[in-house]
Nucleic acid binder design. Structure first.
Length: 862
RNA sequence: GCUCCCGUAGCCCAAUCGGCAGAGGCAGCCGACUUAAAAUCGGCCGAGUCUGGGUUCGAGUCCCAGCGGGAGCACCA
């Protein structure tokens, strides 16, 4: 078959109106024709200040320029475009921009591999993607393109960094960080997946380094609590993942005195009620606290600790996160004193306690915590039950029943025997003043006691850690800080921004654990105004900084006086509809939310959440699994576009199923989509009525169907049921076909009305075909810039409906009735039915439910 | 292990408030066109909704339990 053409037999009568126009659906011709028109018309530019239409900001997650666009991009941009085009048809002024997230490791790694400049490699890829994107026909405003690797963009990245620095939200600290052994750079917690580097899948180890952090933990409560306002507009899955990630725990801080040490050690616990059951303390071996506690110990203890620490640090994240492995640890030879009962308990170091969570130390209550129990059993430490989990609790009050007393079996099983810690509700015991209280009451009471004694307080802690933003790589935004020899940090003046990346020429980009920029002597060495020498910070920023505010830069991408114009933000932001993959459910979205809240606090924006609504599209699979080279199941987008046309591929993406579901390309039919487009397109060549024709008088059944679609379309599109909209369009095209072939014919006004509505709605999915159809229908310009009519309510009323009559839930008869029939009339009709009488037989009718005009159900005594 | 989501025709998927299980597509079959085939056009066939209970006049839809699939979290004190 000839590429680019869906052949069909020419019907002589269909040529009458457009003798000169081609009468074959040739998508290549249509694409080329309309691409040129769009370049000329700029139908999607959003730059007219006099535009008074209401506004919508529809944003697709911008792509990373690694190679050409693939099927995943195709799906995302097809779906985002449906939403953008829909709001335009509804009369909105829609901002729908596109850009490139063009800094980052893959570009640099690829550049190293090929021995080329990362800059050249990146911009070559952008150009390729830009052309593919244009061909793909998404309704972007091409005058607002940005690239995060442009100095004009990253200048404002640096500005943002300095704003955070001024607020104390950007700081440097030495700590154990995730180190990717392959990429030779640090990773944020969020970038470590199952102990491996999210990007290259290599093993991650811990390394102690001084790094830059953003203090996202200051915003933990707001990031968590504000998720409530996104409920219903964001996928619940994403909200759950974010909640989980922030991981707020509520409990208490408890101060323990350490014998022979002036300072107390504070531990965080979610179970302060079990404080009387604490039989030892555990600190993280890699914490400063452990090192300090062991410093005064005897040589044997020190030696054991040193050996243990070395072993811990050697282990990879994968080993460390294996929850099934045996507990390990060493005693530190120190004694802690329980503040509530004065009990002396030993202090151990063990790697099941994490240095950077809570205070890096825990009170171990082995009877009621599984981890502590395993440790106690392994090292033969005492276990004391302080909550009787066999005592039921009604409300907050423990209840002991006479039966229980009689059974003499009040105590729960011994955790040491069963190996199971007693985690449940119960009644406090062995706990002095807490005895007899329920768990929740005991928590309240013990916090009061601790606060009175000054040895503890209610506390919250989070799983979320501060955001590590420095990277020891070349292709990123330089951190705008100077370091003097005496260790001072000097922020670069705002007027001196951007701190431009030096050329990569002459730099060794091979990863070696330190930033390549440190070797750019001309760049890194600077002299301060007072004559002292300083060095630029050689690290670059995590690219998630770039993408945490790009949606604001789109508002005025060429403004060189500010990052974004707050007045424009007032007009357009926050983003009304954000569209992208669920892969960014945590990282990108959390960071963007954080930065938005910071900008709110700084007074730059008036909203606290960046994305009012979120749509996650699924992945495109092939034969049940993700496409990959190793599986050899890659479907090339460019080949699909060559074979079936842009519109057919886009339509297939929308029609395949709910947007959030994965699409298996083996299950769908782009050829079927092309067939449908050709059918619809062909009809526009058969219509013989003129654009000015009066609708009324047209075929009533077809008109009703058209208006039902008009009435349903908004709800369907806004509910992201794109697949249903496409199905309804197919249905309507089938109906038009019938009306032409075996009904009133191609000249009927209802045919024109129907195909015009099809054309408008089809433009959401198949913009090239729709614009060509629009022209064939006798109009000029792009159908995408028209608006959609409202349904005529008089046409939505059915002339008659089918009422069904059930007997005991089974359908026994049906009638054609007026939609306005009342309950009594319908019941009389139903009771008069022979079929119903036969079904009822001689049984007694006990109930008749009437739901006029659609249903009667007669229940009989059985 | 914990949490969440999903199981409807051979396949992908629809089904407003609980009210006739089917909108659409793919595949299949039949017919038209063709010397023939492909393509195209027209038509047809096709589940009783994963299983077992429950609520209800009535359950794909609500509740409980199980099975199957997917996702997230997982030594976070």
């Amino acid at each position: 078959m000839a590429r680019g053409t869906v052949r069909h037999l020419t019907n002589e009568s269909s040529v009458t109106q457009h003798d000169d126009a081609p009468n074959e659906y040739d998508f290549t011709r249509i694409q080329e024709k309309w691409q040129a028109r769009w370049d000329e018309l700029r139908p999607f530019a959003t730059d007219n200040p006099a535009d008074t239409r209401p506004r919508k900001y529809v944003l697709d997650m911008f792509p990373y320029p690694s190679g050409d666009l693939h099927m995943g991009h195709a799906e995302a941009y097809a779906l985002g475009d449906v939403v953008a085009r829909y709001w335009r048809l509804q009369g909105f002024n829609v901002l729908h921009p596109i850009g490139w997230d063009s800094f980052g490791l893959p570009a640099e790694n690829a550049a190293i591999k090929r021995g080329v400049d990362p800059r050249a490699w990146t911009y070559d890829n952008i150009e390729q993607q830009r052309q593919s994107m244009k061909r793909y026909g998404a309704s972007f405003d091409w005058d607002r393109v940005l690239h995060t690797s442009d100095p004009e963009y990253y200048k404002w990245n640096q500005w943002l960094f300095l704003k955070l620095y001024e607020k104390g939200l950007a700081y440097r600290k030495a700590s154990w960080v995730n180190w990717c052994t392959h990429d030779q750079t640090v990773l944020a917690n969020e970038q470590v997946v199952d102990g491996r580097c999210e990007r290259c899948d290599n093993v991650v180890v811990k390394k102690k380094l001084t790094q830059w952090y953003f203090k996202i933990t200051d915003y933990a409560d707001r990031l968590l609590d504000d998720l409530n306002q996104l409920e219903g507009s964001w996928p619940s899955k994403v909200i759950a993942m974010q909640r989980n990630w922030i991981g707020r725990s509520v409990g208490a801080d408890v101060d323990f005195v350490i014998e022979g040490r002036a300072e107390r050690v504070t531990v965080f616990t979610t179970r302060p009620d079990t404080l009387f059951g604490a039989t030892f303390m555990v600190v993280a071996p890699d914490s400063d606290l452990a090192a300090e506690l062991v410093a005064d110990a005897d040589d044997e203890t020190k030696k054991n600790f040193a050996a243990y620490l070395e072993q811990v640090q050697k282990s990879t994240e994968i080993e460390r996160q294996d929850a099934t492995r045996e507990k390990t640890g060493v005693p530190l030879g120190r004694v802690a004193i329980n503040p509530v009962n004065g009990e002396r308990i030993p202090v151990w170091a063990a790697d099941y306690v994490l240095a950077d969570y809570g205070h890096g130390a825990v009170m171990a209550v082995p009877a009621h915590d599984q981890r502590d129990l395993e440790f106690a059993i392994k090292f033969d430490l005492p276990v004391r039950v302080v909550v009787d989990t066999n005592a039921p609790v009604t409300g907050a009050i423990p209840v002991i029943t006479p039966e229980m007393l009689e059974a003499g079996d009040l105590l729960p099983p011994d955790p040491v025997q069963t190996g199971e810690a007693l985690a449940g509700e119960g009644r406090l015991m062995n706990s002095g003043p807490l005895d007899g209280l329920s768990k929740s009451n005991a928590i309240k009471r013990v916090i009061e006691l601790l606060e009175e004694a000054g040895t503890g307080r209610a506390a919250k802690t989070y799983r979320l850690r501060d955001w590590l933003i420095s990277r020891q790589r070349y292709w990123g935004t330089p951190i705008p800080i100077l370091h003097t020899e005496d260790g001072r940090e000097i922020p670069v003046e705002e007027s001196a921004l951007p701190v431009e990346l030096p050329p990569s020429e002459g730099l060794d980009l091979q990863p070696k654990g330190a930033s390549p920029l440190g070797a750019a002597e001309d760049w890194v060495n600077v002299t301060l105004p007072d004559g002292t020498a300083a060095r630029r910070d050689p690290d670059t920023m995590d690219t998630f900084v770039d993408s945490s505010w790009y949606f604001l830069r789109f508002l005025n991408p060429n403004d060189d006086t500010q990052a974004f114009d707050p007045k424009e933000a007032e007009k357009w932001a926050p983003v009304d509809q954000y569209v992208g993959g669920v892969t960014h459910a945590i990282l990108h979205l959390l960071y963007a939310r954080f930065i938005t809240k910071v900008l709110f606090d700084l007074g730059y924006v008036s909203f606290t959440e960046p994305f009012s609504a979120l749509l996650n599209q699924g992945m495109v699979l092939m034969n049940g699994s993700a496409m990959s080279k190793s599986r050899g199941n890659i479907v090339r987008l460019s080949e699909q576009l060559d074979e079936h046309g842009v519109d057919a591929v886009r339509l297939t993406m929308a029609f395949a199923g709910p947007p959030e579901d994965d699409i298996d390309w083996a299950d769908v039919s782009p050829a079927g989509s092309a067939k449908f487009l050709a059918r619809a397109w062909r009809i526009t060549g058969e219509v013989t009525s003129s654009p000015e024709v009066e609708w009324k008088g047209g075929d009533a059944a077809l008109r009703r169907q058209t208006h039902r679609l008009l009435a349903d379309a908004p709800g369907l599109v806004e509910g992201f049921k794109f697949n249903v909209v496409v199905a309804r369009l197919m249905e309507l095209v089938n109906a038009i076909r019938k009306t032409i072939d075996s009904g009133p014919g191609a000249g009927d006004p209802a045919v024109r009305e129907a195909i015009e509505i099809v054309t408008k709605l089809l433009s959401l999915f198949a913009p090239y075909t729709a614009d060509d159809m629009w022209e064939r229908l006798g109009y000029e310009g792009s159908v995408a810039t028209t608006t959609l009519r409202k349904a005529d309510p008089t046409l939505l009323v059915e002339e008659s409906v089918t009422a069904i009559v059930q007997v005991d839930g089974k359908v026994r008869d049906r009638f054609e009735v007026a939609p306005t029939i009342d309950t009594g009339a319908l019941e009389i009709l139903a009771r008069g039915s022979d079929a119903v009488a036969r079904a009822v037989g001689d049984r007694e009718i006990v109930n008749v439910i009437v739901r006029a005009p659609k249903l009667v159900n007669i229940a009989t005594k059985r």
